[in-house]
Design a protein around this nucleic acid. Structure first.
Lengths: 213, 213
DNA sequence: CTATTGAGAGCGAACGTTCATTCTCAGAAT
DNA sequence: ATTCTGAGAATGAACGTTCGCTCTCAATAG
């Protein structure tokens, strides 16, 4: 009975977050009205406010919920047999496979964090976390000798995030953007940036140009 | 007197656009109220509406105004003695030298175009124009033998825009983002993507790593 | 040179709407 | 009987836009 009550509350909360996520991705954070979210969640405003104290709390809840999920995908790279293959998998997962809803939502959170300090702090926490994971991933690959030793790891991590953001935005802003077509070029560039200079361009092409899919 | 009148009207319009640009960059398109823009322009709402029929018209005006300016910077690359130096200059101009106001404004237009069809059409026109210019620039470089002949020019142009968007967003979203530090890595990657495979990595480093600034 | 006039420039209060949030109250569960 | 859950109308602030008014000033008439 304790269990059931808390369980129910938690379920209700995730239902609401799901509905809000769809609305935000579809209409944007400001454009999506509480009424719209309530309708999507099949619930009255008064009731929704019993679960979340404000509209901001909805975004915060969504961001928080996605943090763990995002973080998990980095672990895979470290345990992949070949670093660049692992990275390619990560890239595909983040740049191509993600649903339009997720991409749109990400865009929405980014632009909201430009002016909403509350969201900005939350978002920057997550970004910082992700950047650290990328940097750690790169350092591990350096130790393993898969990546050039003289790399500016911090800057390289930033570059990878730049690529991620750029791809994400093009996807959400350019209709008919073909991530699939661009990905090989991206991977090639990244390989060039990270790989030891001894690795030949031919090797680069064979590893990045094809190799997955 | 004909001249003066039209001149005055035009001046007023650019003044208003300047003010609106500052407001939008600072507060965002939706957050910036007409009152705020009026205050910034030193003008009453009623009067401002004599020059622009709506808030949307302000964004449209700003976008339109920046199109030519943006386009002009591409001509420089074509006339540069070395393609990659020209490209590096363009990159520096777009990724590092741009003012925070411009970057913020760009972010604002992008996110607004995600949900405002009117703005979306305008923005996509401009983006399309820019992409064509980049592609043309690349094709010219291919003809000159400065860039590898087997390049997927369309995809490469998209990649360059991805990089531009990514850098722009990181600048406007990550406090303390150091574009200067990241730029060499970006240029190196781009060189790797575009240059003929005959060009050695050493050549790449000397051309991209330093060379300007 | 002065007076008249009329259109453009400008103001700021007011309007109508939208929206997040709160209030009130009724039914269900315990 | 009391607490939990829910609905939906009410509230009040904020916003884009409009409206009616005043002021400025150059052109013309006297």
């Amino acid at each position: 009975m304790y269990r059931t009550k808390e369980q129910r509350q938690s379920d209700r909360r995730t239902e609401i977050l799901d509905a809000a996520q769809r609305c935000f991705a579809r209409s944007g954070f400001h454009q999506a009205s509480m009424q719209e979210i309530c309708a999507e969640a099949g619930m009255s405003p008064g009731n929704l406010y019993r679960y979340f104290p404000s509209k901001e709390a909805l975004i915060a809840g969504i961001s928080e919920r996605n943090r763990a999920e995002a973080a998990a995908s980095f672990a895979k790279v470290d345990s992949a047999p070949d670093f660049f293959e692992g990275l390619a998998g990560l890239a595909r997962h983040h740049l191509v496979d993600r649903s339009d809803v997720e991409v749109g939502l990400c865009a929405e959170i980014m632009s909201e964090s430009r002016r909403n300090p509350e969201i900005a702090r939350l978002y920057q926490d997550i970004e910082h976390d992700i950047k650290n994971r990328i940097a750690a991933m790169l350092r591990l690959a350096v130790e393993r000798g898969e990546v050039r030793a003289d790399l500016d790891v911090e800057a390289a991590a930033t570059v990878l995030m730049v690529l991620g953001d750029g791809m994400s935005w093009r996807r959400s802003v350019e209709p008919g953007f073909d991530a699939e077509r661009v990905l090989p070029l991206i991977l090639k560039m990244v390989h060039c940036l990270l790989a030891k200079s001894a690795d030949s361009p031919a090797d680069c092409a064979s590893r990045c140009g094809e190799g997955e899919r």
